[in-house]
């Protein structure tokens, strides 16, 4: 009886192995196309790229979803992680490899991904609310430290109107959204007076209390900036963090009443979201993906959708006079971003 059982078990295992392998093969690139995954923030550029470039399979998804999948990838599949390149604001590829390293897993990305485009991080602000803050609690330019301090306060207590309710500040979820994480890093950098803060400082009571206050004022949204615009004149949020590439062109195209009601603030020092094309270490990586990085088409599509690319015209809604720093102006250690995500999870429960 035991023998029969063992045979049945063996057959089941073999069939299961065959089926699993078939699934893996199905997921692989069988038509010779290069497989590009784009972060949600780059959907428009990637859609245009998909239409313009042959031999490319484009998938759009939130950075956190791609990261989650790649972090969980066993070493046995690193030779074909399912994608050839990841177009995403940094430092998400480094985050993936750090998290893999913590599990003693091999990296999936080549080092030093190519930066294709940049965009300053901005605060989208209702002008009337911004004026109240400038003249009152922020005493000058509105920036993240001040927004965190007043978040949740009643507007009428700050010199605004009672009908505005409380001060509501939002950004996208930093555990899934590439921009959301960068905005959070920008806010933390301003809180600490620069990007050189340590992971330990992100656990101080002072920072956590400030962050909690900020996060409690407005729940994370899929696209707070678009929600602010589409639900105008109501103020779903009074201020929202975003990249200029996301907010500038949309605001420039908005109906006059909305265009007049909102402004983009560029907190000093300027910090940036830098779009990188990270190539995987896949054995059979399609070389077209490398061509994509070197060629101009991806840069062109990014520039047309609001990103700043050397040698390309600026799209409508992208300000000419903003000087970008040499680096991002954000922490250079991707591990700090992971620690930021942890702090954020801690205060938002």
């Amino acid at each position: 009886m035991k023998t029969v059982g063992a045979i049945v078990a063996a057959v089941v295992m073999v069939v299961a192995a065959v089926l699993i392998r078939a699934d893996i093969d199905d997921a692989r690139n069988t038509d010779g196309n290069a497989r590009l995954v784009c972060a949600t923030e780059l959907e428009e550029a990637c859609s245009q790229l998909d239409d313009a470039v042959g031999g490319l399979d484009v998938t759009v998804e939130a950075a956190g979803e791609t990261a989650e999948r790649l972090v969980a990838l066993p070493d046995s599949e690193v030779d074909d992680p399912g994608i050839d390149g990841w177009l995403v604001p940094g430092p998400w590829p480094q985050i993936v490899d750090i998290l893999r390293g913590q599990q003693q897993l091999q990296p999936v990305f080549e080092e030093s991904p190519t930066t294709l485009a940049r965009s300053p991080l901005v605060i989208v602000m209702r002008k009337d609310r911004g004026r109240v803050l400038e003249q009152g609690p922020c005493a000058g330019a509105v920036a993240w430290p001040c927004l965190g301090d007043v978040a949740g306060d009643e507007w009428d207590e700050l010199g605004g109107e009672a009908s505005w309710g409380s001060v509501k500040v939002a950004h996208t979820d930093p555990t899934t959204s590439a921009t959301g994480l960068l905005v959070l890093a920008q806010a933390a950098s301003e809180f600490f007076g620069g990007p050189g803060y340590s992971r330990a400082e992100l656990q101080t009571d002072e920072f956590l209390a400030w962050l909690e206050r900020l996060e409690d004022s407005g729940a994370p949204a899929a696209s707070p900036f678009e929600e602010m615009l589409s639900k105008f004149p109501t103020a779903v949020y009074d201020a929202a963090g975003a990249s200029e590439a996301e907010a500038g062109p949309v605001l420039a195209e908005a109906a006059p009443d909305r265009r007049d009601a909102f402004t983009l603030l560029y907190p000093e020092p300027v910090t940036t979201a830098d779009v990188v094309l990270a190539l995987t270490t896949s054995d059979d990586r399609d070389e077209d993906i490398a061509d994509l990085a070197a060629g101009g088409r991806a840069r062109q599509e990014l520039a047309e959708t609001g990103w700043r690319v050397d040698g390309q015209d600026l799209a409508e809604g992208v300000r000419k006079r903003i000087q970008l720093p040499a680096g991002t102006g954000l922490p250079t250690d991707a591990g700090v971003f992971i620690a930021l995500q942890d702090s954020w999870r801690q205060v938002t429960g």
Binding site: T40, T59, V60, E61, A221, A222
Partner: peptide, 13 residues
């Protein structure tokens, strides 16, 4: 172009 499931956007609603 494909758009796989998104777990990201449910936060508010």
């Amino acid at each position: 172009m494909t758009r796989p499931r998104s777990f990201a956007a449910l936060s508010l609603l």
